[in-house]
Amino acid sequence: MATGWAGDGAVQEQIDATVKDGIARARAKLPSGPGLRHCEECDVPIPEARRRAVPGVRLCVACQSARDQEGAAFAGYNRRGSKDSQLR
Rank of each mutant, 00 (worst) to 15 (best):
M1A: 13
M1Q: 03
G4F: 00
G4D: 01
W5M: 11
G7C: 03
G7E: 05
G7R: 02
D8S: 03
D8Q: 01
G9D: 00
G9M: 02
A10W: 06
V11I: 06
V11W: 00
V11G: 12
Q12L: 14
Q12E: 10
Q12H: 05
Q12W: 02
Q12Y: 02
E13W: 01
E13F: 00
Q14G: 13
I15H: 06
I15M: 10
A17L: 11
A17N: 11
T18G: 15
V19R: 13
V19F: 06
V19L: 13
K20N: 12
K20M: 11
D21R: 15
D21A: 15
I23F: 13
I23G: 11
I23V: 15
A24E: 15
A26N: 08
A26K: 07
R27G: 05
R27H: 13
A28S: 14
A28V: 04
A28M: 04
K29C: 12
L30R: 11
L30V: 07
P31H: 07
P31R: 02
S32V: 09
G35M: 04
G35A: 05
H38T: 10
H38P: 00
H38A: 12
H38L: 12
C39W: 01
C39L: 02
C39I: 01
C39D: 04
E40L: 03
E40T: 03
E41I: 06
E41C: 05
E41S: 09
E41F: 04
E41H: 09
C42H: 00
C42T: 01
D43P: 01
P45R: 12
P45K: 12
P47F: 00
E48N: 06
A49R: 06
A49Y: 00
A49T: 04
R50N: 05
R51V: 04
V54M: 03
P55T: 01
V57Q: 03
R58T: 08
R58E: 07
L59Q: 02
L59S: 01
V61P: 00
V61S: 14
V61W: 00
A62C: 06
A62E: 06
Q64T: 09
Q64G: 13
S65V: 05
R67P: 08
D68R: 04
Q69L: 11
Q69R: 14
E70Q: 13
G71I: 02
G71H: 03
A72E: 09
A73C: 03
A73N: 03
A73D: 08
A73R: 07
F74M: 12
F74N: 12
G76N: 09
G76S: 10
G76D: 05
N78E: 10
N78L: 09
G81S: 09
G81F: 03
S82K: 10
S82G: 14
S82R: 13
S82V: 09
K83N: 10
D84K: 14
D84M: 11
D84H: 14
S85L: 11
Q86I: 04
L87E: 12
R88D: 13
